[in-house]
């Protein structure tokens, strides 16, 4: 199959395509088809993958933990002030689990990853296009998708899933800290109450959401980065588009997945 990123083919297939959605879907199809080639070049690609995980995942751990602890504490704080009026303090655990594990954990992590890594990927790939590095790779017979996009895509997906897990743990821990301020509560007792409300389906839903969010962020950001033609001024424009479309895609995917969870 002829690459969709081929310089000669690009004006016909992607840049000049009037149907952007169609071109994006074709781009994703090519990513899927190039996956096998990615594993055949594992030794080359793994360093890029590791560095992507390091940048997107590990380096974002600090900000993710801080936000998670604050969000968990705020949920307990707000929930306690409202629910105690109805004598429903026990529902704090239900709200904490449902809000953090099912929704906020994934969505807020996706926002942070978009802000940090999505923009970085779009900018980096855009500059590479401007600097004709993509053309250079293709002239050596190296697929830009398998060499540049797929490691970033996998790195973002893995980082997204991992960061969501850390976000959940940190948010629940922050909730415990704030809850302890109201009345001292044993950590094991708190966790036991939490696990009474937590379902395996909640954990799986969080992981599935993180996977799709990571995929959306990476694919949209890389697609927008590769959409840069020749001018450097296009790079920030595409970066902004990458952020906007990534966040929109994350929200839409969140709604769809949540509906699927409740209806199926």
């Amino acid at each position: 199959m002829k690459s969709l990123l081929n310089i000669e083919a690009r004006p016909k297939s992607l840049i000049q395509s009037q149907n952007r959605l169609r071109s994006f879907l074709l781009y994703n199809l090519e990513i899927f088809l190039e996956t096998i080639q990615f594993y055949s070049q594992w030794k080359i690609n793994r360093n890029i993958l590791y560095r992507q995980i390091l940048f997107t995942g590990f380096e974002a751990l600090g900000i993710i933990t801080l936000i998670a602890v604050v969000i968990g504490g705020l949920i307990i704080l707000e929930g306690n002030s409202i629910l105690t009026n109805f004598g429903q303090s026990k529902l704090l655990f239900t709200i904490l689990v449902s809000v953090i594990t099912r929704e906020l954990g994934c969505v807020l992590t996706a926002f942070i990853v978009t802000a940090r890594s999505g923009t970085a990927i779009a900018t980096e790939l855009g500059n590479m296009v401007v600097n004709q590095e993509i053309e250079a790779l293709q002239s050596f017979g190296i697929s830009p998708i398998s060499y540049l996009v797929l490691p970033r895509l996998l790195g973002v997906i893995i980082s997204m899933i991992t960061l969501s897990i850390y976000f959940n743990v940190a948010a629940l821990f922050g909730g415990w800290i704030i809850a302890s301020l109201f009345h001292p509560i044993d950590f094991l007792e708190f966790m036991n109450s939490l696990f009474q409300e937590l379902l395996i389906a909640d954990i799986i839903l969080g992981l599935v959401k993180s996977f799709f969010f990571g995929y959306i962020i990476a694919s949209v950001s890389s697609y927008q980065g590769l959409q840069v033609s020749f001018a450097r001024t296009e790079v920030p424009q595409r970066t902004i588009k990458a952020v906007v479309f990534s966040l929109s895609g994350v929200i839409v995917a969140d709604i769809v997945l949540t509906l699927m969870y409740y209806f199926y």
Partner: peptide, 13 residues
């Protein structure tokens, strides 16, 4: 770093 970072997450899950 990546190994530890991922391993802890996997253990937690």
């Amino acid at each position: 770093i990546i190994g530890t970072f991922l391993l802890i997450a996997v253990v937690i899950v």
